[in-house]
Nucleic acid binder design. Structure first.
Lengths: 126, 126
DNA sequence: CTGTATCCTCAATGATACTG
DNA sequence: CAGTATCATTGAGGATACAG
């Protein structure tokens, strides 16, 4: 597959496709969004969890660690008892908020299209 | 989870989140993109397959059928031998090209950010 | 040419309980 | 409070062979 792949914009590593891969994880986009728009780019673990109804402790930590590895957030540990940890959006992370909000903005302004799609899906459940 | 979910923008069915769900499937976005930007909104199965290096016949058909169910494309079968089938982007489908190209456009103009992310990931593989 | 039918694998996600 | 460790689930995606 690698050898036969044409040198065009459809390669696995083309810029366009990589944008979507970032948001492939179920929670990454929501963490970026809530962190930036509601929590001032920085928040403690507990605050994040309460801001993301439905997320489990496991997925929260796991996603945040992945984001840290990607350089999207910075993890700070305070040597207190009980322990306190917070996550801050990095400059790189902030840049990824841009395309995300672009998408969210489109969704908010085009809810009719999304509703039409949902209607089609419901009709399918006959 | 349903009962305890606050009535805010984080509900499973909020408009913003649904935009990303559309592109959750690995091939949907690429089919939309190639169909619109390179194939004049309509193409036969074989053409699509050759335009999407790496896709299997199974995933191609499956994704196209899902898109048809969603009202994104129209499937036309010609009673010829050998059989011919083509898929045409619906008006609804065309509207979903918009946010997709928005995202792709951002990616093309910000490849430096995507490269930075990739670099972080590589560094992680030490 | 187009599509179906199996079988298979693996990674993402979640539930639960435990630790410092 | 923050995080780790298991275990289980499940659905997406792919390989292959067959069919109309």
């Amino acid at each position: 597959m690698r050898a036969g792949t044409p040198d065009n914009e459809w390669r696995e590593d083309c810029a366009s496709r990589r944008v979507l891969e970032i948001f492939a994880s179920k929670w990454t986009s929501m963490i970026l969004h809530v962190l930036h728009t509601r929590l001032g780019d920085c928040a403690r673990t507990g605050v994040l969890q309460r801001s993301l109804p439905g997320i489990s402790k496991k997925m929260l930590t796991q996603t945040l660690r992945d984001m840290e590895a990607d350089g999207l957030v910075t993890r700070r540990v305070y040597g207190t008892v009980p322990p306190a940890v917070d996550y801050t959006l990095t400059p790189l992370g902030k840049r990824f908020v841009e395309p995300l909000e672009l998408l969210y903005g489109w969704g908010r302004q085009n809810s009719d299209v999304l509703d039409a799609l949902a209607a089609n899906r419901d009709r399918q459940l006959l």
